[in-house]
Amino acid sequence: MSLKNIVSLMAVSVMGVFLTAAPSAAQEFSSILKATSEYMQADSSEDTSELSGRILQLLALMTILSIAPGLLVLMTSFTRFIIVFSMLRSAMGLNQTPPNMVLTSLAMFMTFFVMQPVFEDAWTGGLEPLLQDSITEEQAMENISKPFKAFMFANTREKDMQLFRDMAEADPEEAINLETVGWRELIPAFVISELRRAFTIGFLIFLPFIVIDLVVASVLMSAGMMMLPPIMISLPFKVIFFVLVDGWYMLVGSLVESYSPMYGG
């Protein structure tokens, strides 16, 4: 109970004592009692409206948290990173090394590194002014979405964008730019563009390891060791090859630098 309600209840109690002790004073205190009752009702309505606003904010926060994993995967660089790391592990023949948690965490922190300018623009332009009550929720949503839209548009092929614009029956004579493209076409076009780039990088990663497998298999067959699985011999060579060429440095650096011209849009 708020301080205003406590003070009001105390005032009503004191007036009730006086009215009981002196019935002749009822007419004198009736106006005070009426004013106190109206004050309590006004305060209660203010508390109710404030509580309703808090509940709506809590529901909005829970909704955002529930779709946050999907947004992280579809609207950032996370998709490209995790697919490339998974294909690297398959190319080397390592089943659970590095573990999924390590690869996912590395991809997530690389995503934060690449997307930091986008997050900063979204914070300074939308979220921070909203918390300071300087802009409305609609303006905040627009300002928050603009950096993400610019980042996705800069990393989406025009061919993929045109595909979804045609399926959405957009005006074919309308120029494709950041203002004319909607989220309906942009998100799926960005996802398939990221998948294409990730599979292209994965194919290039597979090539040297396939060569090592072919060389080892040929040597074993020529030596008559056909019953020996080639993977047992080629796996150490693939691991030492990746270490000698400083593979993690080259791979992670190349992935991050593929976004560096935009630096998050």
Rank of each mutant, 00 (worst) to 15 (best):
E174V: 08
L74K: 15
A11C: 07
P172G: 13
L127T: 14
F203V: 08
I212E: 01
W183D: 04
G125I: 03
T136A: 07
L186I: 04
R80N: 12
Q96C: 00
I64E: 08
L244E: 00
L131Q: 13
F153W: 06
F206L: 07
P172K: 11
E46T: 09
F153Q: 01
A170T: 12
N143P: 00
L94S: 03
P147Y: 05
S193M: 05
S30V: 07
I231L: 15
L72M: 14
M221W: 14
G247W: 05
E179Y: 10
V245G: 01
V12W: 01
L72Y: 10
F209P: 00
P117M: 09
L251Q: 10
F112R: 08
L255C: 05
I201R: 01
T79S: 14
Q132L: 15
T20G: 05
P208Y: 08
L204W: 14
E137L: 12
V211R: 05
P172A: 13
G202M: 07
V181N: 01
M250Y: 06
M227I: 08
S218F: 13
L228Q: 01
V114F: 11
K4M: 05
L255S: 03
L220T: 08
V216K: 10
V256R: 03
A217G: 04
I231C: 04
P229M: 09
I82S: 01
L220H: 08
I82E: 00
T136P: 03
M10R: 04
G264F: 02
P98Q: 06
S145F: 04
N95D: 14
R165V: 09
S45Q: 11
L3E: 14
T136Q: 09
F242D: 00
I176M: 13
A26L: 00
S105C: 08
A170I: 04
S222D: 02
I82T: 02
I192Q: 02
F18R: 05
L103Y: 02
I187L: 06
Q57Y: 12
G265T: 12
L94D: 00
I233M: 02
L56G: 04
I233S: 01
S234N: 12
L106F: 10
D166W: 07
I83K: 10
L178S: 12
L204G: 04
S90D: 11
D246H: 07
R80V: 15
L61E: 13
M108G: 11
F206E: 00
S44K: 11
I64V: 14
S193A: 08
P230N: 06
P229H: 09
L71N: 01
S260K: 10
P261S: 09
A154I: 15
L71M: 05
Q57K: 13
G224F: 11
V84Q: 07
R165I: 10
V7P: 00
L9H: 08
T63I: 11
L94M: 05
A60G: 11
E257H: 07
P69I: 06
T124Q: 15
T48G: 05
R157T: 14
A91D: 02
P236H: 02
F151G: 01
V219R: 12
L195D: 02
R80W: 12
M62L: 15
E137M: 10
T136K: 10
A168V: 05
V181W: 06
T97M: 03
Y39Q: 06
L19F: 13
T36C: 01
I135G: 03
R197T: 11
A223D: 08
F85V: 01
